[in-house]
Amino acid sequence: MDVEAVRTFVAVVEAGQFQAAADELGISQQAVSKRIVGLEKSLGVSLLVRTSRGSRLSLDGHVFLPHARKVLAALDQAAQAVRPGSRPLRIDVLNRRVVPAQAVHRFYRSRPDTALDAVALGEQDAGQVARAVLDGDLDASFRALPAEQVPSGIRAERLLDMPLQLLVGPAHPLAGREQVRPADLAGHRIWIPGIRPGTEWELFYRSLSQDFGLSIDAIGPHFGDEALMDALAGSDTLATLVGTDDRYLWPDSYDLRRIPLHEPTPVYPHVLLTRAGHQHPVLSDLRDYLRASGPQVDDEVWVPGWVTH
């Protein structure tokens, strides 16, 4: 059934005349007549009785009219539901504890009426998530995706560079330092459990290790962030790396120390992935917010050479 013919039928009924309906729809009277004839032919009934004064509904037209109006209303509602800004922005924040989640949360708090649907898909690698964005299952995601792996049709923007910090317990040899150079970490064991081979963060930490001669390992099972904090608190050799705004909590008795890295400052480049040309209005607001509120680094910055710029 031709939806425009149904819309024309309802317009004729409400206007009372073919010419008035044509004027309302912005088409010719001949086009209105053609649509009505086509609709009647597809239904096998006459919907309108033509008179010298215009037209009136036939018996079948009276039966069809309320259904036609419901069809048009449903179509209008369906179109409205997917218009940009009519549904929440669905965004992958990677992990609830890390920087993208904190940044999106601050963005939401600055605009509490914003419709957002934040999900954490940290178990999926960057390629899978980029495909989900391209397919429309997600509106956006934060990933450190190598430039050559950005699929056609994806817009990749470095909008959230997060400086790394060293996290150690009070007995660690570097615990008293105000800042540490990445090169100073050579010879110290940096433990980051849970790094999965083939993920973008595994590639990032491998690049960091190679460029500064570090020993970063993921040996042993990852029993959660609380277990990691507990291990750091009781060790004089273990250290880990965290983002400046990553949200980790531990008891005061642990006395863990966050130590900035400088000369240069390694940053983890959270790249915003969206579909090219995607027009959801919240995306524009989020981009502006990230550009205005991102961390400022007063130091030379290090990122892997493969990062999207």
Results as ranks from 00 to 15, higher is better:
residue 143 R to W: 01
residue 158 R to N: 11
residue 145 L to W: 00
residue 30 Q to H: 15
residue 29 Q to F: 01
residue 124 Q to N: 05
residue 157 E to Q: 13
residue 284 S to I: 06
residue 174 L to Q: 02
residue 39 L to P: 04
residue 247 R to V: 03
residue 69 R to N: 02
residue 84 P to I: 11
residue 148 E to A: 11
residue 293 S to A: 14
residue 61 G to R: 03
residue 5 A to M: 09
residue 186 A to I: 04
residue 71 V to G: 03
residue 150 V to L: 12
residue 91 I to L: 14
residue 230 D to N: 10
residue 169 G to V: 00
residue 288 D to K: 13
residue 213 G to Q: 15
residue 160 L to N: 04
residue 187 G to C: 05
residue 7 R to V: 01
residue 218 A to V: 06
residue 63 V to P: 06
residue 131 R to M: 09
residue 88 P to C: 13
residue 37 V to C: 06
residue 12 V to W: 00
residue 161 D to G: 05
residue 226 E to Q: 15
residue 102 Q to T: 06
residue 148 E to F: 09
residue 5 A to W: 06
residue 226 E to W: 11
residue 14 E to K: 05
residue 255 D to Q: 14
residue 210 Q to F: 06
residue 206 R to A: 14
residue 251 P to G: 04
residue 142 F to P: 01
residue 284 S to L: 09
residue 41 K to G: 02
residue 191 W to Y: 07
residue 51 T to E: 10
residue 290 L to V: 05
residue 125 D to Q: 08
residue 142 F to T: 00
residue 223 F to G: 15
residue 64 F to R: 06
residue 80 Q to K: 06
residue 33 S to G: 14
residue 135 D to E: 11
residue 157 E to L: 15
residue 84 P to A: 08
residue 300 E to C: 05
residue 83 R to W: 09
residue 53 R to F: 07
residue 251 P to K: 09
residue 207 S to F: 04
residue 6 V to G: 02
residue 164 L to M: 01
residue 140 A to D: 01
residue 188 H to L: 07
residue 176 G to Y: 07
residue 249 L to N: 12
residue 59 L to C: 13
residue 221 P to H: 10
residue 96 R to D: 09
residue 40 E to I: 15
